[in-house]
Design a protein around this nucleic acid. Sequence first.
DNA 1: GCCTGCATGTAAACGGTTACATGATTCG
DNA 2: CGAATCATGTAACCGTTTACATGCAGGC
Lengths: 186, 186
Amino acid sequence: MNKTRYALLGMLNDAPRTGYMLKQDIETTVGHFWGESYGQIYPILKQLVAEGLATVSISDGKPLRKVYAITDAGRSELRRWLVEPIASAQPSRNELLLKLFFGAEVSKEALKGHLVRQREAADAALATFAGIKDALQAYEQDPNLPYWLATLRYGERVQEAVRGWADETLDALDAPPSGASPRRYS
Amino acid sequence: MNKTRYALLGMLNDAPRTGYMLKQDIETTVGHFWGESYGQIYPILKQLVAEGLATVSISDGKPLRKVYAITDAGRSELRRWLVEPIASAQPSRNELLLKLFFGAEVSKEALKGHLVRQREAADAALATFAGIKDALQAYEQDPNLPYWLATLRYGERVQEAVRGWADETLDALDAPPSGASPRRYS
DNA sequence: GCCTGCATGTAAACGGTTACATGATTCG
DNA sequence: CGAATCATGTAACCGTTTACATGCAGGC
């Protein structure tokens, strides 16, 4: 039921890593849709070893590094989870939408600020994705590439939708309040 | 910092309600991007009263109902929060994308199953939104309507993006693996 | 010598869900 | 009469983040 373990197993399935490296790699690869903190990583690595899903080997150098590797049992547990249907996620909370929903209580200028910042965030995300896409060309032969690209395209699609929505909503906030436009006497 | 309080204040700002009603109303209005459980609602309502942001009045009927109403202090606290910039959200976890990212480890059929279910969920959400949009026509004069519609359009845009992505990704999974298609000897 | 980055870990606090307990009312 | 719904609340549990503590290595 705990999903952190599968994120770690998935990463270890690609290559053995230390806890520290797992954190970095998670950030740079699945960072736009998944996050883990050390407070989770280290205890769960210990668990995985206890359950026989991973092994540790302490590097005999001075810097003290514990390199974790996936076992066959770990790989089959990973596969089991990968195939298992996804429990319909309860809606994650969206603070922007909540503020907008209650928007009648505050000035339109304040709401526009939220929307502009959201659009900027979407643009920044899209720029990041473009950079990643370029970097991924180096992996042309990697069998993982199609899957990595699919997650990237998800991000692109959603961020484009958000940006379009923000633009549209900014326009709507400027448009005449409702119904007939206030007719000027002529 | 706790956002549940603002969800409750926002709802109470519309009209006084019981804890039970708050739960129902949150589900039916902001349910697609916000959720609250009784375990949060009741204790926090108590807090709000202690802080002077809301008042309770116990209905003198037999069924024991506690009706909460927002105070002026509560309203100004709500406004303060509504205007405050949104802390850049850390990416919420997306289990589907994580499974897809590690997709090379399992069969394409399994992955297609995930995508088909996701597309179905998107379609179902879009159908719900269409229903809500119809129902909202009754609120034509309500000053809240433009904001409610804006949150609805967000849902539509994002779900459409997700559906489009799922279709595209299903196609990609069927397409020849990578590079040149395996040339048949002729 | 100091700062940054590599590296490991823990404890406390937090926010939230789930399950449980209770009881009245209403409708079939 | 029994089931569903209205209604209030608490306790346990869970996953996660944050802050803290430690120490080595390498470059400025």
